[in-house]
Amino acid sequence: MISTELVLMLRKRRVWLCWALLCLLPTVVAVLLATTRLAPPPGRGGAFLSAVLSDGQLFPAAALALVLPVFLPITVAIVSGDAVAGEASAGTLRYLLVRPVGRLKLLVAKLVSVAAFTLLAVLLVTVTSYIVGVAAFGFGPDAELGGGGITSLSGATLTPLELAGRTAGTVGYLALCMLTLGAVGIFFSTLTDSPLAAALGVLAVVVTSAALQPLDAAEAVRTFLPTQHWLAWIDLFRDPPLLDAVRTGVEVQLGWIVVAFGAAWANFTTKDVRPVSGVIGHGQ
């Protein structure tokens, strides 16, 4: 079932469109920056944006910071909201279940395919923005000295190997953060037959979490907000990397995934798969 699910995902035009748009936004920013050479002053604008003019290799980090707050969550919401609700509204859900595919197995396959989507999304953004960044801004001044190394946020120079390792860590961490939304999306997707409703539900969670984050009154629950730790990966680019925030982030995200997936399973395992309301069919 997992291979079927992956094939299904990879053959959806919507998925490729999401990936293309994710890669397009950083590219547009890179083109604008490269033609105007007007970088935002340090401390304003997206993270790393002020530094990319001097070193194109930092652009993947800047690109991830660009797509993280809105774009990436939207694509994950669309894809995960479609997971079960899409099959239900297309009618293919009942044929999968009588094939038979166990209900837990189906949900696991959906989670794996959403995980693959998020990982590939973050990876594609990283790779394209690295290519675009180096093409637009070239290697930094440290490149000749340190053999392609870049300056970390703390001022020390990172070797290419260190940079690769930290970038990989960032990709994994962000994919995990997005998988949290994916698991929530799968849960919502089992509650409704409308993929759109499930996707909007995910976005509602993101917006609520982001709104609570700066509130002092929400101090007690802040650590558990899914968006709270999204920017912790920036610490990976310090020297030496600060792992505390990332570790907390990973724990919180895993907690969300377990809870959301458990809720999805609890709801779906006893759910009646009935005709889609609102669609005129025959029989009852």
Binding site: R13, A90, G91, Y95, V98, R99, P100, V101, G281
Partner: peptide, 30 residues
């Protein structure tokens, strides 16, 4: 269920794939 063939509430398929691909995926799923 592996010994039962069913048509419930009209046929349904993944619309963006060919008929043959639909059957292959369904066969692979179970």
């Amino acid at each position: 269920l592996p010994q039962v063939g069913a048509l419930v509430e009209g046929p349904a398929a993944w619309g963006h794939l060919s008929g043959r691909a639909n059957l292959r995926l369904l066969d692979a799923a179970g």
